[in-house]
Amino acid sequence: MKQEIATPNNGNSLAAECVDEASVLKILEKHDEDRGGLIAILEEIQREYGYLPEKALRVVSDKTKHSLVDVYGVATFYRSFSLKPRGKHLVCACLGTACHVRGAPSIVEELEQQLAVKAGETTADMEFTLETVNCLGACALGPVVVIDGHYSSKVRKYRVGQLVDEARRGFDSTEIGNDQRIFPIDVSCPHCNHSLMDEAFVIDGHPSIKVSVSFDHEDGSLRLSCLYGHYRISTELDIPIGTVVNFRCPHCHVQLPSTSDCSVCGAPMVPMLVYGGGMLQICSRRGCKNHMLDLA
């Protein structure tokens, strides 16, 4: 057998040093060691670091009943585990039979050229990792390229450059501009009709919606993204997922009056007036994404 030398990430001693034993132990704590969920542990470590650092594997074998040989064997057996540091963006090109006959090899070639790496490698600036898979199960849409979880179907050579650029900018930021379903809204308090918009605090490049919130004897302010369907919030409070929060207007300090309950989780819906006529209702439970928009 030819010796396949898995480079123990020589070129990235910096990343290897960043591995914190405590954070690996924290991951291990979450998993019941007796059940032997080695793959689940490794998956979580990979989620944390983007790859499986040597030190983390050693910690896993020290703290669980698995020997280092077994841990290493599992880590090298599965394609989804990587022992080498991976880039910020993961580019995954399908080379399955259907994609292959529809021209996937030339797409991979183009990707290799654009990123200046071979398949399986990471660019020098640690931005992109190019990988190939043998089938993504979307054969009718081939050739398929997945970048950071965003699927692109029927990719042609000329689109490769666009996709790489989009990934570099980040898919989320491009979506706001292009996606018709996401748009900014202006809202005001239904009681005092004072605008809730806060120009000074910007989320996603738009003014945020400022409200006062309280729960369990704690109160403070909460800022919501004004982009409809974008759900981003910013708050100094540590609101646990699932908590029902009281919303108050920061100007008149009156609790935003609830007229209905959430159809998903049963928590009160919080109303806000939409500028130009209409009513927005959002669920007051943290983590529940239910909302309604009635435009007059």
């Binding site: 057998m1 030819k2 010796q3 396949e4 030398i5 898995a6 123990p8 040597e54 594997l57 020997s67 280092l68 040989v69 077994d70 841990v71 290493y72 064997g73 090298t76 057996f77 599965y78």
Partner: peptide
């Protein structure tokens, strides 16, 4: 000892120590 084991898969399967360095055990 469990110093050596199988690594990789399929065509690339091989026997050796983890990380191809001398094993502690």
């Amino acid at each position: 000892a469990k110093a050596i084991g199988f690594r990789n898969r399929g065509q690339n399967r091989s026997i050796g120590t983890p990380f191809d360095i001398k094993s502690d055990v």
